[in-house]
Simulated scan of single mutants.
Amino acid sequence: MRYVTLTDVFVHPVAQKYLKRSGIAHAIATAYNAYRLAIQHGVNADLATKAGLLHDMGHYEWYSNGTWDYEQYKQNDIHAIKGAERAHKLLIRLGEHPQNAKEIALAILLHTDSYLPEGEFKRKPLQTIIKLADEADEEPGGKHHYRQIDDALALKKIKQLDELVNRQLQKERLDDII
């Protein structure tokens, strides 16, 4: 059962504020990558697409002398921590099941190694999928955050992904019955 759709999340003013800051085109591409990976690995596509969409909503804009400073970002970034908190709060506010909101927030928290201590770290499947989905869309120097997409096209792509998730969940329900 879906408590909250991607469209519900995407159109919310809080999501719009932070998605625009971190790049809507990248967020949507990551959500689609997360969907494909979730299907391949038997992970909940609803949770994966939401985590993929919201994975960078904690970004802070690191500027020096009026221009983006990628090196300063790489050295000081903790966007996954702030993003996990923002996503959890938003999802709960929208009516997402609390356990789902927690799983999504944890996947966002662990989607990058940029602030984690060195050494072995074992991610759960959803957390690994979000990391891989993000990496699949990265461009050198953080340029993936600056790709543009028309607002109407962005909403259309979100609605299409919602439909894919709905069909996948229906298929899984039918498979459980049979």
Rank of each mutant, 00 (worst) to 15 (best):
M1V: 06
Y3V: 03
Y3I: 04
V4G: 01
V4N: 04
V4P: 02
V4K: 04
T5H: 07
D8V: 01
V11G: 01
V11T: 10
V14C: 03
V14N: 06
Q16A: 08
L19G: 01
L19P: 04
K20P: 04
K20W: 12
R21W: 02
S22W: 01
G23M: 00
I24M: 02
A25S: 10
A25I: 02
A27E: 05
I28R: 00
A31P: 12
Y32W: 14
A34C: 07
A34I: 02
R36H: 13
A38D: 08
A38N: 07
Q40Y: 10
N44R: 09
A45S: 13
D46H: 12
D46L: 07
D46P: 03
D46Q: 11
L47V: 00
L47I: 01
T49D: 08
K50F: 03
L53R: 02
M57R: 07
M57N: 04
M57L: 11
G58I: 09
Y60C: 11
E61S: 11
W62P: 13
S64P: 08
N65K: 13
T67Q: 14
Y70D: 09
Q72A: 15
N76H: 08
I78L: 12
H79A: 02
H79G: 01
A80F: 00
K82A: 09
G83M: 08
K89D: 12
K89V: 11
L90Y: 00
L90M: 03
I92P: 01
I92F: 00
L94W: 03
G95E: 05
G95N: 07
N100W: 05
A101K: 01
K102D: 08
K102C: 08
E103N: 14
E103D: 15
L106E: 13
I108Y: 01
T112Q: 12
Y115Q: 14
L116N: 15
L116I: 15
E118S: 09
G119E: 13
F121V: 10
F121R: 13
K122V: 12
R123F: 06
R123S: 07
R123G: 05
K124M: 11
K124S: 11
L126C: 02
L126D: 02
Q127F: 03
T128I: 14
I129C: 05
I129N: 02
I129Y: 02
I130W: 05
E135F: 14
A136T: 03
D137A: 12
E139D: 11
P140F: 10
G141M: 05
K143Q: 15
K143S: 13
Y146N: 12
Y146L: 14
R147A: 09
D151A: 09
L153R: 06
L153I: 09
A154R: 00
A154Q: 02
K156F: 00
K159Q: 14
Q160F: 06
D162T: 00
E163N: 14
V165F: 02
N166R: 15
R167I: 10
Q168V: 13
K171I: 04
E172F: 08
E172D: 15
R173W: 12
D176S: 13
